[in-house]
Amino acid sequence: MNLVSRIRNQRQSLGRALRACVLALALPFAAFPLAQAQTMPPGAKQPSDFPRAKLTAGMYVIDAAVAANDADREQGLMYRTKLGANEGMLFVFNENAVHCFWMKNTLIPLSIAFIRADGTVTDIDEMQAETENNHCPRNNGVYALEMSKGWFTAKGIKPGMQIKGLPQPQ
């Protein structure tokens, strides 16, 4: 075998090995979106299945999914991989109390505002994804509003401000 033939064979072998490596590295990433879609357990509510409310915080309009029963509040934003720019979830409770939250199975970092029955924001907290730390307000409230992490700060929303358009607890 002459030198040119050996070089050609080595190039072909190297090309096959390189393609195999690229394929081996790419396959796990190709399956990633499918794996994300499968993280929603059977029976979990799809984001579009929650009732919606249009809320306002200052000049900002919020598109909020509403979790007003035990099952919806328990699921909350679990398993979601993204939120729209002014999208969030409003938790409505039937009692004025301290309602604590955690981020188990919640894949995106969130900010949470705790709100009294009259719409006044009492506390705002930042929450890391997939943690089990308790996030509890210092004050009693009837609502909690979760938004993408940093949303309240970016919009200048602070304790003492009002959220309008809140549905009545049942």
Rank of each mutant, 00 (worst) to 15 (best):
80 R>K: 13
8 R>P: 04
68 A>W: 06
84 G>Y: 12
79 Y>H: 14
151 W>F: 05
146 E>C: 09
54 K>M: 15
129 A>G: 08
153 T>V: 12
21 C>N: 04
5 S>R: 15
65 A>Y: 12
147 M>S: 08
47 P>K: 08
160 G>C: 06
37 A>E: 07
54 K>F: 03
92 V>H: 13
159 P>A: 07
5 S>T: 15
164 K>T: 14
41 P>Y: 10
70 D>Q: 14
88 G>C: 00
116 R>T: 12
119 G>S: 08
150 G>R: 14
121 V>T: 04
71 A>W: 06
163 I>A: 03
46 Q>E: 04
118 D>C: 05
140 N>C: 01
170 Q>L: 10
25 L>W: 07
12 Q>K: 06
25 L>F: 09
139 N>C: 00
106 T>A: 11
165 G>H: 11
120 T>S: 13
58 G>H: 02
60 Y>I: 11
80 R>G: 05
112 I>L: 05
116 R>W: 01
35 A>K: 04
20 A>I: 09
105 N>A: 13
80 R>V: 06
88 G>K: 02
97 A>F: 09
146 E>M: 05
163 I>V: 14
24 A>I: 03
101 F>W: 12
160 G>R: 07
136 C>H: 04
124 I>E: 07
42 P>I: 03
47 P>N: 13
112 I>K: 11
137 P>I: 09
68 A>I: 05
114 F>E: 07
74 E>W: 01
40 M>C: 09
35 A>N: 02
58 G>R: 10
151 W>C: 06
123 D>R: 02
151 W>S: 02
146 E>Y: 09
154 A>Q: 10
42 P>T: 12
64 A>F: 08
14 L>K: 01
14 L>V: 01
45 K>L: 15
117 A>D: 15
104 K>W: 00
16 R>C: 01
95 E>S: 15
116 R>I: 03
130 E>P: 02
152 F>W: 02
80 R>Y: 02
146 E>W: 03
17 A>Y: 03
3 L>F: 11
36 Q>P: 05
28 P>D: 01
135 H>F: 13
63 D>T: 12
3 L>A: 14
149 K>N: 07
131 T>C: 05
28 P>G: 01
111 S>D: 15
47 P>I: 14
57 A>N: 01
110 L>F: 14
113 A>H: 04
49 D>K: 10
76 G>D: 04
41 P>K: 06
163 I>G: 08
83 L>F: 11
128 Q>F: 14
163 I>L: 09
160 G>W: 03
149 K>C: 02
145 L>V: 05
83 L>H: 03
35 A>I: 07
170 Q>V: 13
97 A>Y: 13
142 V>Y: 10
2 N>I: 07
42 P>N: 10
